[in-house]
């Protein structure tokens, strides 16, 4: 079964992304996908930039975090009968032309959720800066401890979720820790999960906007706190 692009909702959380957003979102929309941009309480011109684009826009009245923005986009997609949801970054790291590869296991009925990985192909792996690579290895271990899933990559924001995954995954982490929370949810709901290679392009802009490597410590603490207080 090939899902027609309008049934594929590409959810893009955006916080102060007015500079890059048009270049990132417009081609995805032009490819026919339903693009849902969640403006996470930006203080810059993000909301106005969105008005000029052929996308559906949602706006948090206050800044809540990437995890919260993704969830808002997912609830919207669910209410609008999305068949597949793609998580997509606003800073230009991801390539929308890889979406068909990413959703293929879902279309074939082989998986409920597909995680993009930077570590399945040598040339993708070489794109990752070496310090980041080392931190991500530790992240893989931390994710395994938190969720029990051993993967090749962690905190890769490029994912595809089937309708079933969309209906069962419950996210509570507002910040970046949602990425590990998704893994715990995959396990809790017995979702079928596969990894597919994706290329992440690290520009100066995306490196500045993305998570700092030190933030991984923060994520581990967030997750520990969540285990204690939920």
């Amino acid at each position: 079964m090939i899902t027609s692009p309008p049934d594929v909702f590409v959810v893009i959380p955006a916080y102060n992304e007015s500079k890059s957003l048009a270049a990132v979102a417009a081609p995805v929309a032009a490819a026919g996908y339903a693009v849902v941009v969640v403006d996470d309480g930006s203080q810059d011109d993000t909301w106005n930039v969105l008005e000029t684009l052929p996308v559906r826009r949602l706006r948090h009245p206050i800044n809540l975090g990437q995890g919260a923005a993704l969830k808002t986009g997912m609830v919207y997609a669910l209410r609008h009968d999305a068949k597949i949801v793609i998580h997509f970054d606003a800073d230009g790291q991801h390539d929308y032309r890889q979406i068909p590869e990413l959703i293929e296991p879902i279309e074939k009925g082989e998986a409920d959720i597909v995680l993009g990985s930077r570590f399945l192909r040598a040339h993708d792996r070489n794109m990752v800066p070496s310090v980041k690579r080392a931190i991500l290895r530790i992240g893989v271990l931390a994710s395994w401890m938190a969720s029990g899933m051993w993967l090749s990559d962690t905190h890769n924001g490029f994912r595809a979720l089937s309708r079933r995954a969309l209906e069962t995954i419950r996210l509570h982490e507002n910040g970046f820790a949602h990425a590990t929370e998704i893994l715990s949810e995959i396990r809790r709901n017995n979702l079928r999960c596969v990894e597919r290679p994706v290329t992440i392009s690290y520009s100066q802009y995306s490196m500045a906007k993305g998570q700092s490597t030190l933030n991984s410590l923060n994520i581990v603490i967030d997750l520990a706190m969540r285990r204690l207080f939920r």
Binding site: V38, G41, L58, R59, H60, P61, I62, L64, A68, K71, T72, V75, Y76, R79
Partner: peptide, 8 residues
Amino acid sequence: ARELALHA
């Protein structure tokens, strides 16, 4: 905040 965004 989410409901506000979705409602809008």
